[in-house]
Design a protein around this nucleic acid. Structure first.
Length: 752
RNA sequence: GCGCGGUUAGCUCAGUGGUAGAGCACUACCUUGACACGGUAGGGGUCACUGGUUCGAACCCAGUAUCGCGCACCA
């Protein structure tokens, strides 16, 4: 497939062989694409080198002298460079055409200070007069810009570097054979010795490094294969018009900018691992042939192969990868699955892979019709975050800074690792890895296991198998407690939020919602409240509570399965929720609950839970140890509360909760206002003074809040223009707070 | 230089116009009949800054600072 594509593009004239400036990796000794070059700031020196001006009279000028300058004749032109080791390859000195400082020198010659020779002084617009001395040494063989200047002025190209980055220049024997970096220092010394180094100063500039071997690349003239990208406008439009959508969308801009500035792709590599280029060259150079017939490109070797020599180079690895989206499928599979729904990948390979796959799809049209929407490789691209270590570095094999997943699995379990990672994976944002986050995943797995174990302690599953769960009716739970209705309605919300999260590829949000529902709504509140029924004598209530527990568990396991495959599979089969693997179970759907029941249950449960929290707070403030039972009195305004007093006692860890509508309280008794009425903590020797202070603080706090609410309601434009629900909310709050304040003031009075 | 993203509790991060959140860390109490990889209660934020829009801004707009990424430059 790869060779086929090569031949195809060659025949279309999009692939060509040429001698051009490329990025050369002297360590790996291969050409690279522009995308494989990584710019890094490097500390070095900027050398100011004197190039003597050639005097017209004598062929060999003497060294620069002060006298010559004083006589009005410039003795030299000063050039700033970071690479003195390439001076031997200079074939010109360039200044800006409108730079008055050097106008008199343009057209003259200068002496190249190493490998001494005459080189022309030219004027070119590309020169920045502000930089350095405003004069540039032109080294066409070793710099992209210099090459272009050289082309414009017909300067010769002199190459003084070997493939492995050593100096190749017999005219400077002291430098010949030296490594380029050693040669840089030696060249500076030689210039110093020859009194041609004016000065050098510390300097930081960007240097291109090879992504492959992490050494500075050498811009170099070389004969290589190139691809002129086809379909770039279509590729731009596809993403701009959202035939392909990126998640998160801001990467679309990065993609667009790359395509708008796209350059031809250098696709040949001088490495042996790769697809060999299907090109052959005519061996016999002496035989005069048409240049076109000296090269053969085809899937099969040419006839009379002894007369041909195959290119030994291979293709860039991405030149095969860009076909991945469709060449991995046969025709039949492709008809079914191409275009694919989503590509999951890292934003660091947006150019290497994503963009090129899109171009390949548009160019080779593997889809079932010729329309673009049938030929794009995928409809969505989900970009994951890149995981960085604690120092913010990208994890890599060569740095050895990535944690060993097997070690993490040993410590935290496969599900713990997986869930922990999903929970911290914000879409497209980098992730600073912290093992603590994986620990949380393990803790969550343990929590799930424990709550399941609690359920198992109370007998066999009451709902099964899963088929019966489809179209499950609330009536199947018997007469449900308000806690059951509340938790089921929260489960419904969770299911919807999970669906929404998946639609947006917000996996972290899916994980977070499930975590919160299981830990807080289910374990902390529902299971604790349900214990009243479970440990009670009423079989019907007990069975109702247990079957709701079962149902919620079965739903949670299915929702969590993609995030925690092992533990959910295990629990699924232990509980016998389904006949088959959880993997193939239908995902849970929101259960149909009576809206009025839900509204009632949620109001009441929320009131009960906040009364419980208020009571627990009283306990803590009164310094009653957690394991000591306490006595409470609830001055309930609502008679129905009596039905829930058992649950209230359990949740408050109360020895007794007395309901008393007329309770007056004892001076100094801790009291809190709750939606159910005031709750009193009846302790014998409560600290009267401490309680007065506490009440004063509370009253002050509430009054501040009340003033804020009143101010708000006094604002006419707020009342007129804010949504009615918001205004109502403020009114309710104002009312609630003033009632609370009144009650607290009464309590305060009783303490006098 | 151009573009993109971040800046919210000590730390790592959620939070798209309506009373600031989670986990960890911290304080106190607790091995109470699922769970100490746990429970309960609590402390801790001028949401980087400045302006603007709005009845109302962490959120929208403009600008600034700062960190990171990409592209370009890189003599």
């Amino acid at each position: 497939a790869v060779q086929n594509v090569f031949v195809n593009l060659y025949n279309k004239g999009l692939i060509y062989r040429g001698r051009r400036m490329i990025n050369w990796d002297p360590a790996a000794q291969t050409a690279l694409s522009d995308e494989e070059v990584i710019n890094k700031p490097q500390k070095g020196s900027l050398y100011y080198v004197r190039y003597e001006i050639v005097e017209e009279r004598s062929a060999s000028a003497p060294l620069a002298t002060q006298e010559a300058q004083a006589g009005g004749l410039r003795a030299f032109i000063e050039v700033a460079t970071t690479r003195p080791e390439t001076i031997m390859a200079d074939t010109g000195v360039a200044v800006h055409p409108r730079d008055n400082r050097y106008a008199d020198l343009v057209g003259k010659h200068a002496w190249r200070p190493l490998a001494r020779d005459k080189i022309p002084i030219i004027a070119d617009d590309a020169i920045d007069p502000e930089f350095g001395t405003g004069a540039l040494k032109v080294t066409p063989a070793h710099d992209k810009l210099d090459f272009e200047i050289g082309q414009r002025h017909n300067l010769p190209v002199v190459d003084v570097l070997t493939a492995d980055g050593r100096i190749n220049c017999l005219a400077e024997p002291e430098l010949h054979g030296l490594d380029r970096f050693a040669a840089r220092e030696r060249a500076a010394e030689l210039l110093q010795d020859r009194h041609l180094l004016a000065k050098s100063e510390p300097y930081e500039n960007n240097v291109g490094f090879s992504d492959r071997s992490d050494v500075p690349i050498e811009p170099s003239i070389s004969e290589q294969w190139f691809l002129h990208y086809p379909r770039t406008n279509e590729a731009l439009a596809i993403v701009r018009d959202h035939l392909i959508t990126f998640f998160p969308a801001y990467w679309e801009k990065v993609y667009g900018q790359w395509l708008e500035n796209i350059q031809d792709w250098c696709i040949s590599r001088q490495v042996w691992w790769g697809h060999r280029i299907p090109a052959w060259y005519w061996r016999d150079k002496s035989e005069i042939r048409n240049p076109k017939s000296e090269i053969y490109v085809g899937l099969e070797p040419p006839a009379n192969p002894e007369k041909w020599r195959q290119d030994e180079d291979t293709l860039d690895t991405w030149f095969s990868s860009w076909l991945w989206a469709y060449e991995t499928m046969d025709e039949e599979t492709r008809r079914k699955f191409y275009p694919t729904s989503v590509l999951v990948t890292g934003p660091d390979i947006i150019f290497f892979w994503v963009a090129r796959m899109i171009i390949a799809g548009l160019e080779f049209k593997p889809g079932k019709s010729t329309r673009d929407e049938d030929n794009i490789p995928f409809r969505h691209v989900y970009f994951t975050g890149i995981i960085r270590d604690k120092l913010g570095r990208k994890m890599s094999k060569s740095l050895g800074n990535s944690p060993d997943p097997l070690e993490l699995i040993d410590k935290y379990g496969a599900d713990g690792l997986r869930f922990g990672l999903m929970r911290i994976a914000p879409s497209g944002q980098d992730i600073w890895f912290d093992e603590k986050q994986i620990e949380q995943g393990r803790n969550f797995a343990t929590k799930l296991w424990n709550v399941a174990r609690f359920r198992q302690m109370h007998g066999a599953t009451l709902i099964s198998p899963i088929e019966k769960l489809d179209g499950f009716k609330p009536s199947s739970f018997g007469s449900m407690s308000i806690y059951a209705i509340e938790v089921l309605s929260r489960l419904n919300e969770t299911i919807e939020a999970v669906e929404q999260g998946y639609r947006e590829y917000a996996f972290n949000s899916v994980a977070q919602r499930l975590y919160d529902f299981v830990w807080s709504d289910y374990c902390d509140w529902f299971v604790e409240a349900a214990k009243t029924g479970i440990f009670g004598a009423d079989e019907a209530k007990k069975n109702s509570a247990l079957s709701v527990m079962d149902y919620v568990l079965s739903a949670v396991l299915r929702l969590l399965h993609p995030f925690m495959p092992h533990i959910t599979e295990e629990l699924w089969s232990l509980f016998g929720f389904g006949d088959g693997s959880i993997q193939f179970a239908e995902p849970p759907k929101p259960i149909a609950l009576d809206e009025l029941d839900v509204a009632t249950a949620r109001t009441r449960v929320s009131a009960i839970y906040s009364a419980v929290q208020a009571g627990r707070n009283l306990r803590a403030e009164a310094k009653i140890p957690s394991n000591k039972k306490a006595r409470f009195v609830l001055r309930a305004t609502d008679g129905d509360v009596s039905r829930e007093s058992g649950t209230l006692e359990r949740l408050l860890n109360a020895e007794q909760l007395t309901l008393d509508r007329q309770y007056q309280g004892v001076p100094g008794e801790p009291v809190a206002v709750t939606p159910l009425g005031e709750i009193f903590l009846t302790v014998g020797e409560s600290d009267k003074e401490a309680e007065r202070e506490r009440l004063d603080r509370e009253i002050e706090r509430l009054e501040t809040e009340l003033r804020a609410a009143e101010e708000k309601l006094a604002n006419a434009s707020f009342v007129e223009r804010a949504p009615a629900t918001v205004v109502d909310e403020h009114r309710r709050r104002q009312k609630d707070i003033s009632e609370q304040v009144a009650k607290l003031k009464q309590a305060r009075l009783r303490l006098q």
